[in-house]
């Protein structure tokens, strides 16, 4: 359990560079259809900067779909249609002049199943850096090693893997793989990290370790985490969003939601009457 009293009330004051940004993710009247099936209805959400916000709700309520709107990865499917606006750090990412590559650079994503690439640990970490920065691709070995060490240290993995950076990332345990998947996002310095049930493939010990890591990262990144695990939402997030049938039912401080939920649906879900 995290003591919520000690959390900063207004994180934007302490966050250095973009002082004016309060909301890392803001949506207005967001609707989404898969073909003719509407998955998201008029969602207005404001996800605060440099906090961990969790999204809970029963299967099929649109949490993951919402997450995938925030870096426009949904569009890959081809038959997806969205209306409304999604602003990341104050900029509409559905605006016509937006370069998707830049969106993906700012908004990293971690998946349910760890999906390290079939490359070495080192190359996994350098993959993003090499994509976005041709200089990094040509940089000296020492400079690249530095990037690798920083990223792996940040995710508390350096000591475990420093002697086998050349080994395939797929040899790591699931917990280590998931940490690596988080680490490989860091060299391109994203502002927002989206996590789609990042612990659901892990055992309890791995879950704990990855949760700790996520908590560790909250100072530097805005983290939006979808979870099925209510205990996880409760212990590892500042704010909590409850979704049902493609709509946002409730969005409050996590501590409040789990103690005094406003809506009956929220209370029922939290108490495990459905879901």
């Amino acid at each position: 359990m995290v003591d919520l009293e000690t959390l900063p009330e207004e994180p934007s004051e302490s966050a250095a560079p973009e002082v004016d940004i309060v909301h890392a993710i803001e949506t207005r009247k967001l609707n989404l259809w898969y073909g003719t099936f509407q998955a998201i209805f008029d969602v207005d959400l404001e996800v605060k900067h440099n906090l961990i916000t969790s999204m809970i709700g029963p299967s099929g309520c649109g949490k993951s779909t919402f997450l995938r709107c925030c870096n426009r990865i949904n569009e890959r499917l081809g038959y997806v249609r969205t209306t409304g606006a999604v602003e990341i750090l104050g900029h509409d990412i559905y605006a016509p002049e937006v370069e998707l590559i830049q969106v993906r650079k700012q908004v990293g994503m971690v998946f349910q199943r760890p999906n390290p690439l079939p490359l070495s640990i080192r190359d996994n970490i350098l993959f993003g850096a090499r994509l976005h920065d041709p200089e990094a691709a040509k940089a000296s070995r020492a400079a690249q090693d530095d990037i690798v060490e920083k990223a792996l240290t940040r995710v508390l993995l350096w000591d475990t893997v420093k002697d086998r950076l050349g080994h395939s990332a797929r040899e790591l345990s699931l917990e280590e793989q998931q940490k690596l998947c988080i680490a490989r996002l860091l060299p391109v310095q994203p502002k927002v990290l989206l996590m789609d049930e990042p612990c659901s493939a892990l055992d309890p010990k791995g879950t704990e370790a990855v949760e700790e890591l996520i908590w560790e990262l909250r100072e530097a990144y805005t983290i939006l985490i979808v979870t099925h695990n209510m205990a996880q939402a409760r212990r590892a997030s500042d704010e909590c969003i409850f979704m049902l049938h493609g709509k946002v039912v409730e969005h409050t401080k996590t501590a409040e939601m789990f103690v005094t939920p406003i809506h009956k649906e929220t209370a029922d879900y939290i108490e495990g009457r459905y879901g």
Partner: peptide
Amino acid sequence: VPQAFREACWNMGATRWQTIRKVVLPN
């Protein structure tokens, strides 16, 4: 080639060609 590899690349901002060249073709 598992779809997860492609998703990993796309989500890091790789173009389709970069994904093909670095991950899909080698595998």
